[in-house]
Amino acid sequence: MSQPQASANPSPQPRQNRIAYQYDKWQRKLAPYMFISPFYLFFAIFGLFPIIFSLYLSFHRWDAIGPMVFVGLENYSFLVTDDWFWMSLRNTVVIGLMTGVPQHVLGLVLAYMINSKLVKFPNFFRTSYFMPYITSTVALTLVFSIIFGTRYGALNYLLEPLQNVGGFQWLLTQLNLEYPIEWLGRAHTIRPSLAMLMTWRWVGWNMVLYLAGLQAIPGDLYEAAKVDGASNFQLFAKISVPLLRPMMLFAFTMTIIGQMQTFDEPMILLGTGGGVNQAGMTTVLYLYRTSFEWMDFGTGAAMSYLLFLIIIAFSLLNFKLFRRGERD
């Protein structure tokens, strides 16, 4: 009874094993593609498609309601001759430089201080300086709108005692200001005010980056230099800074990309108008206004592409300058 059965199906076990083995091999091969595919799927829909559509849109006139009208390069030629576009770009760059430079200088110096063995509680300082970065820009910008108040703000209150100092008055006259300073009410104080706020927000971020970079530098390098009689400043300038170059490149690039897209702060402090003489009108604020207030999506899309190209150009320039510095 059992004999013929066995001969009809001589070896069920190995065959099943083979199938299982094949399946196993196949699923093992396919598995990684399955795991990473969601990213590419989502990127295709929500990343790549919008970018291509944006390019398409930039050659059209469209108010998002009526039909799309093909206009060729009209949006681009309008923008490159548009005073407001260039002004917004200049504002963005000026604000970016005004805050970018102190952000990195302070960030680096603070990181070096906290990293030095003299300072206790490095984590306390790190956490404190980092706090502005994690909180909502909108919320803290609203607080700054009161700090910057002309007749009630904390900043002018802080400066009040300086009024009796001779040099302060001289400085104010030189800067074409008078006390109490209208931080957000005058065209030439709007950009510095925005820069101060953004510096306050971003110093901690840069400091943390530099601190992480400093902690990665092996301590015996410093020891060896000290044995050779190097001063503290020399340690900083000849060891820390050169070894931080990769981190600096990264941090600078992040600052460039971030600053070129400044929106939240001027929007909250000044509204879509950008303040007196549009002094605080950044490119993204102008882009927002063009697209979502004036419903001119074609021009908005063209502007986003021009801004993208400018960001790439600045990033490459930054990269080139770094490379050249490395060779010297």
């Binding site: 929500f46 990343g47 849109l57 897209q261």
Partner: peptide
């Protein structure tokens, strides 16, 4: 797996795209 290097480099590259580039079409979508 095959194509891993390229796929990974491509993915990292997408981090560099500034979000503002996709904002308008994202809204339209």
């Amino acid at each position: 797996f095959k194509g891993k290097e390229f796929l990974f480099a491509f993915m990292i590259g997408t981090i560099m795209i500034p979000p503002i580039l996709g904002t308008i079409p994202w809204f339209i979508m």
